[in-house]
């Protein structure tokens, strides 16, 4: 496996992204992803942490969270609560089929160097840009100006009864995962295939990292690292049953003006069941 040392510019970029705070990892963790019975309930946690699925850093905010049901309609979360280290909410699966739970956002960010040689970023840390801010706050003639179109998506999938596909259709915005293998039909020792799209087109050469949960109880990350092929596809063979965190990142220069670069980060949680 190739190990690439991240370049300085990549690190700087990461610092400017709203949720990519250092090595902290965002995730949504459903208590179960495969359910039976009439209108079953499921509870979900959302957090940003270092160790996967250990709530040790910050709660994920619920205001950007959406749930779409098998019929494509939005579903209300229930009993939402945000604590110190995690948010939690319940879902009642009143329809049979697959639900998508996600938090997605996108927008422009910029970095440049002032005449005095100081590095500047926009939006600043914790800043939520208002419309027109880009024009006002980013000097277009600044030195080393890089404007990046960024997208971020954190999601998971939950199925009552038969897995369905309606909810898996891409929005063609940002970095997205299109399942070839259904995300609620994953079993240990089996291979699953997915595709990554950037703005609706194959995300070729995207870096994918897969980590099993329970990190606190092992001495290494044991990451599975893969890269997407010419179709944007990649495959993972799940070594064991359990909850997995999948993270992908993609970057190219095929951006639309005023952006000069395009960047996407994608995270999903998958449950793998034993044979």
């Amino acid at each position: 496996m190739k190990v690439k040392i991240p370049t300085v510019s990549a690190l700087v970029l990461a610092m400017t992204l709203p949720l990519a705070a250092e090595a902290h990892r965002g995730w949504l963790l459903p208590a179960a992803t495969v359910l039976s019975g009439e209108e079953p309930w499921v509870t979900v946690d959302g957090a940003i942490s270092n160790d996967i699925f250990h709530t040790d850093h910050a709660a994920m905010r619920l205001d950007g969270l959406k749930v779409v049901g098998p019929d494509g309609e939005e579903v209300e979360i229930q009993n939402g609560h945000t604590g110190k280290y995690r948010s939690t909410f319940d879902l009642q699966l009143t329809q049979q089929g697959t639900y998508r739970v996600f938090s997605a956002s996108g927008g422009l960010n910029a970095r440049w160097v002032t005449d005095e040689g100081e590095r500047r970023f926009w939006p600043g840390r914790g800043e939520t840009p208002a419309p027109g801010d880009f024009e006002k706050k980013v000097p277009k003639d600044a030195k080393e100006l890089t404007v990046t179109q960024s997208s971020r998506r954190i999601e998971t999938f939950i199925t009552a009864g038969v897995p369905t596909d309606e909810v898996l259709a891409p929005t063609n915005q940002g970095l997205e995962l299109v399942p070839v293998t259904h995300p609620n039909d994953l079993f240990a020792e089996e291979e699953a295939t997915f595709r990554l799209l950037i703005d609706g087109e194959a995300a070729v050469g995207a870096k994918v990292t897969v980590l099993a949960g329970g990190m606190r109880y092992r001495n290494s990350q044991d990451a599975i690292e893969v890269e997407t092929d010419d179709e944007g596809a990649f495959s993972v063979t799940w070594p064991d049953a359990g909850m997995y965190w999948l993270s992908a990142s993609y970057r190219d220069d095929k951006a639309t003006a005023p952006a000069t670069a395009r960047q996407g980060s994608y995270v999903a949680t998958f449950e793998v069941l034993p044979q």
Partner: peptide
């Protein structure tokens, strides 16, 4: 209510 655990017969459920 008893249907809630049918999924625990995982391979059959699948």
């Amino acid at each position: 209510k008893g249907q809630e655990w049918l999924k625990d017969m995982r391979q059959w459920w699948r």
